[in-house]
């Protein structure tokens, strides 16, 4: 199923996530997942299936209560808060359903936020952001405010921002959830192009039609993965 010889970016081994409470809820159970470099993987599942929790675990925003998670070969299970923040900055690029662009910043300034907590100089970040905005086809809007952009354009700015630090993995959480069909298509097209250029993408969605655009799909139901 995985390209032979390509190193793994994500390795989940028996990952579980239980939320305390009475009774405790097992949101993720015994999840095994390997994503190799250059893959474009979609995880599809209905709401309540545990896919948000899985994304939080993958994004080092939440810690599993069982199993191991290795990101780019580094075991994150024992990593402290600082180390996890450092890994987020260096290894992960996030794309959110709600874009999370800062309204008072220009497109270029928003994109330049990528790499901020990696310690890249403002100059270097702006340089990379310019290049990536050009790549996502928004170089001409770099001085615009997000409010003047269409949804599809906003998401492409967010993708540029996610790539500034040169992450090992692009994590997309319902990237087309807030978009109309045409904008969604353009964003998915961009993902396909990035994938073709070698970017490793993990996309979470509830929409099987969107998931179908990925090179591999995994279903999640009741906290368990199935191919």
């Amino acid at each position: 199923m995985t390209a032979a010889g390509a190193p793994a970016v994500v390795e989940l081994e028996g990952v579980g996530r239980t939320f305390g409470g009475n009774p405790p809820v097992d949101v993720l159970r015994d999840v095994d997942l390997t994503v190799t470099e250059g893959e474009f993987l979609a995880i599809v599942g209905p709401s309540g299936s545990g896919k948000s929790t899985l994304l939080n675990v993958l994004g080092l925003l939440d810690s599993p209560t069982a199993g191991h998670y290795r990101l780019a070969g580094i075991d994150t299970t024992t990593a402290g808060e600082r180390r996890r923040a450092g890994l987020r900055a260096a290894r992960l690029g996030f794309v959110f359903q709600a874009f999370q662009l800062l309204p008072h910043l220009t497109v270029l300034e928003n994109a330049s936020l990528g790499g901020l907590y990696l310690g890249l100089s403002g100059r270097e970040r702006a340089l990379r952001a310019e290049r990536l905005l050009d790549r996502v086809g928004l170089a001409h809007r770099r001085r615009a405010r997000p409010a003047t952009l269409s949804g599809g354009e906003r998401q492409r700015v967010a993708i540029a921002r996610a790539l500034v630090a040169g992450p090992s993995l692009l994590l997309a959480d319902e990237p087309t959830g807030n978009l109309d069909t045409a904008s969604a298509a353009s964003v998915l097209e961009l993902f396909e192009e990035l994938h073709a250029e070698g970017t490793t993408i993990l996309m979470i969605t509830h929409d099987p039609g969107v998931a179908a655009r990925a090179s591999r799909g995994v279903r999640i139901v009741d906290g368990r993965l199935s191919a």
């Binding site: 994004g59 925003l61 808060e81 923040a85 987020r88 996030f94 709600a98 901020l116 990696l118």
Partner: peptide, 16 residues
Amino acid sequence: VGEIGLRRALGATRGD
């Protein structure tokens, strides 16, 4: 809150 979440995702620590 959204901005705070974004910054954490970008690698900001609590201290940052």
